[in-house]
Amino acid sequence: MARNVTTSRKSINTIAAGALGFLMFFPVLWIVILSFKTEGNAIKAPLEILLNTGWTTESYGAVQARSNYFKHFSNSLIISLGSTFLGMLIAIPAAWSMAFVPAKRTKNVLMWMLSTKMLPPVGVLIPIYLIFRDLGILDTRTGLVIVLMLINLPIIVWMLYTYFREIPGEILEAARMDGASLREEVIHVLVPMAIPGMASTVLLNVILAWNEAFWTLNLTAAKAAPLTAFIASYSSPEGLFYAKLSAASVMAIAPILIMGWFSQKQLVRGLTFGAVK
């Protein structure tokens, strides 16, 4: 049972942890603030920015004007949702098989799938680049959807597998006894029961795909560039750009930050492959 903790002790903890948490969060907070300043004000001393400058939303408009921001935003959206959706479609049957009809090899197959995730992307950069060039899918959203689907597939399969395993096999057998075909069993029983797990799988993989910054940078130019690549274009800027960079960044990370906060718990499970519970 909970112990009695003195109020002063609790206050010290709160202050210490709060300060650390705030420090970690500060860069994010800071770009939110800068994104509402004018370019001239954004480079002033921090105290002056906080105390003596007005607020404006002009940077958000400027970002769109500089380069078609919403095109990149929709690229990110399509690529991360598309790759996750495709991955789920392939992973659900695979995870069903491994969780409910385990064979001797199942564990090895699962481990092998995970091992493909350990392959350093740079090790296969050249062949993928050349294959994509020859297929004409360099700098296309299709190409990125395929690559991101493949690199996240092991994680999707793994996460679904661990969620499916928590569903008692007897319930699926009951459905079979009740006259359900395999398809009906999956649609009416497995999927509805696994919805929370599937939702967090989708969430985590959308996050991973959204933030992926190796393939998205190397396989795109102007056309299919998602936000990771678009933001990278600020590394060689012209003129003052702090406020615009902040505005672009805020829009790029806000949706993912919100999703991420919802998926804290699943994050541990998904990224440690169940090694930490």
Binding site: F25, P27, N211, L245, I253, G260, Q264
Partner: peptide
Amino acid sequence: IMAIAPFFVMPTVSGLV
């Protein structure tokens, strides 16, 4: 939530910021 936030910031954003 505040402490976890940096993990969700895309690498290009954190680099540039």
